[in-house]
Design a protein around this nucleic acid. Sequence first.
DNA 1: TTGTAAATGAGAATCACTTGCAATTATAGC
DNA 2: GCTATAATTGCAAGTGATTCTCATTTACAA
Lengths: 143, 143
Amino acid sequence: MKPSPLITALQASGHRITRQRRVVLEVLEESQEHLDAESLYQKARQRAPRISLATVYRTVAVLKQMGLIAEYSLGEEHGHFETVPETPHYHFTCIGCGQVVEFDTPQVAVAIQELAEREGLEICTVQFSLTGYCACCRAGRGR
Amino acid sequence: MKPSPLITALQASGHRITRQRRVVLEVLEESQEHLDAESLYQKARQRAPRISLATVYRTVAVLKQMGLIAEYSLGEEHGHFETVPETPHYHFTCIGCGQVVEFDTPQVAVAIQELAEREGLEICTVQFSLTGYCACCRAGRGR
DNA sequence: TTGTAAATGAGAATCACTTGCAATTATAGC
DNA sequence: GCTATAATTGCAAGTGATTCTCATTTACAA
């Protein structure tokens, strides 16, 4: 009986609240990681065993389109999802250990803003992510 | 008999200079567009009719790994390639007309640099691209 | 010229995701 | 609470981009 903001928003927009959507949303809200479709599927199955991967994809598509979650490409070939944070941030993924570091660079937001104004652009999506080696892995690599 | 810098670099690193590699390189060097694998393949076929798509992929993989070309995801589901420019730049792709606008934002480079130093990171790849509507398409859309 | 390891072509395979369709189910109205 | 019905689901087949397998070809050092 927890009135999750995501559930409420989904409902308000005229979507039906099904068991599988509720579960996917719960997993997304509880997880602090950046889950990809497959791990989202695995976690969701624990609560709704008959859920299908297609439903996971369909659910994140709806949530993404509503702006409730964001999709990132973290250097891998598939996408990762996260509930939208209050403050926008970007991601660094360590090639060595897989760790994801979130960072906020106001300068980037400013740069985008200036570019949009200068060129008369309307920006819809921003994709900004870095990969490399974190401090730990650099130390371990001997350089 | 033109000693293309890319050919020279390829050779210097111990790779064999085959007809198909030469052709792919030529197409990449001559084109000012951001070609995807398929159009690279189509253009290459005009000079080496029996070249296969697999070879195109293998060739760009080698070039990319050597840092001679860069791959970008321009809002589409597949990659686009470009010979590495002297000055780094990023891309804006118009959802309306498909036009790609290159832009340079020193602020972004600075932000990345500062982040790397602050967190002790070694940055290997930077993915930064925008999508939205260009001035023309915005006008045409009536907003 | 020749030996041999690298590279290629053709097509099968993979990976991430999407779609078609029949069966289920949430929910508005009675 | 029932019922009708349109949204949603599960499954399996389909896609699109890219990679891999393997037999054949080829670059190039000797």
